[in-house]
Design a protein around this nucleic acid. Structure first.
Lengths: 141, 141
DNA sequence: TTTTAATATTTGTATATACAATTAATGGAA
DNA sequence: TTCCATTAATTGTATATACAAATATTAAAA
């Protein structure tokens, strides 16, 4: 059934969640090649871009709770894709060699994801949508 | 941090999820009075509107997996807000008296939610947003 | 009529996420 | 210098959600 045929198609809660789940599914498919969920993949990409980055910074930029970030890191550590070092109250997160090797594939996934959704939605349309949603999210802090 | 200040503010996955989580939070607050999560509340409202409704229908309209709907119903059954009767392979879901009593409060919550988000986003703006997101979700089936 | 395919729902299991409490460390005030 | 408040991160626990498999029933085909 289409989202707009639902009883609750006019409700913001409903529509936003429905959309997010569909996008999530598309993203999951795009990143399945590297065996990571989109969130794990984005976190790993941030660490690859800024080795030594701190969990709090990751939480800010991924807009996730610190505890969630800890859990994501744990999993990526289990997979030997990154490591944590703790000095004082600070923690630094670094990619492992195995994690670094993954970078090209991660970029491919990101590209595929972008290609897929812009093929469906149109490039301009999707850029616009992202902007709109971003603005709205900002207001809702 | 604002969503649009994030490293990933231009990514559809990121923005859609960030937005959905913020809306979800607002919705949770709005429905906390009745002690239900938004999903549970919407399901209950559908049952109140169409007593005897079937899980498959609920899944379609809430755009959730059948298994998820089963779990939501289970919880509402525990809370004595609705009951299931099974005939053959079909299941019918009915509100209990306690569930029916809740209707006015549920409507209040829905109203509060609407009032709150349209106060922040503007009535027209939010209506437009819902439409846009609905259309996009339709394309992403 | 018997067998097979399709359908509706539920279970088992896994996951991402959050909140609240906890731990540990730092920096400022007494 | 010692104590307290703030900060960074983690842990315990709970939740909504999904997927895949199982169950049970109905409809269709042989």
């Amino acid at each position: 059934m289409k989202t707009s045929d639902s009883k609750y198609c006019k409700c913001l809660y409903f529509t936003a969640n429905s959309l997010a789940r569909k996008i999530d599914k598309l993203a999951q498919e795009s990143w399945s090649k590297v065996g990571l969920s989109p969130s794990h993949a984005y976190l790993l990409m941030m660490v690859l871009e800024e080795p030594g980055i701190q969990p709090g910074f990751l939480a800010d930029h991924l807009q996730l709770q610190p505890s969630t970030v800890t859990r994501l890191i744990e999993k990526l550590e289990e997979k030997k894709l990154l490591v944590r070092t703790t000095e004082g109250k600070m923690t630094n997160v670094y990619p492992t060699p195995k994690g670094k090797e993954l970078l090209p594939k991660l970029k491919e996934c990101l590209n595929e994801f972008y290609t897929r959704y812009s093929a469906i939605l149109g490039k301009e349309e999707s850029t616009k949508l992202v902007q709109t949603m971003g603005k709205v999210a900002d207001k809702l802090v």
